[in-house]
Structure formats: C-alpha cells, structure tokens
Amino acid sequence: MATLILTDATFETEIKNATTPILVDFWAEWCGPCKMIAPILEQVAAENVGKIVIAKLNVDENPKTAQALGITSIPTMNIYQNGEIVKTIVGAKPKPALLADLAAFL
C-alpha cells in the first residue's frame, strides 16, 4: 500500500514532520463512499510519490483526532502544508475531479 496509516497517537507528529503536502483521508468501515474513494487514493499516492503523501485515519478506531477537528462527514480529506490545513475536500469524487482539486499540490 502506498498510503500511510495514521492514528490518534501519530497524527500530530506525522503532520508536523511532513516534508511534502500531506492529504489525510478520514474514513470508516461502515461508510460506502469511503470505500469507493479508497482505491482512487491508492492510485493517486502511487502516481505522486515524493510530491504528496496520502494518509488515512480510521475515525472509528481514532475518534479523538476527528473530534478535535470537528469532522462530521466522511470521507473528509484534509490537505496539510507546514502543519496547517490548506484545503478540505468533503465526499467521494471521481479521480479526474479529485486530481483537479489536488492540482496545486502535485
């Protein structure tokens, strides 16, 4: 897998230490649209190694981070640069639309 798995314990450190933009996909097992976007995110990760890190955080197993961020819909994809949220994408979308959203970071 080309994606990085984050937990409540590792979230802050990974965001702080990232040397490229990092997209964090907040997801859960019960969420249909999350399952749809997962393979697309894997592809984006594999095709953009070194440009962007694609990470995933399971909100069911790691509720603290999602709660602290006020996330109320999944999938939510936050993009961080230098430790700050620079873009938020809510909801699954086709790959061309997702790439268009990420164009500034690739």
Binding site: P33, V59, G70, I71, T72, S73, I74
Partner: peptide, 17 residues
C-alpha cells in the same frame, strides 16, 4: 457547512452526532 454539520448520508455520518 457541508461536512460541518450538514450531511447527505446518515449511515456515513450518524456516528459523529
């Protein structure tokens, strides 16, 4: 406010409420 309390998928987002 989509993703900040407005939702279209109860099975996805009920957990947060």
């Amino acid at each position: 406010l989509s993703g900040r309390g407005v939702s279209y998928c109860a099975t996805c987002d009920g957990f947060f409420f």
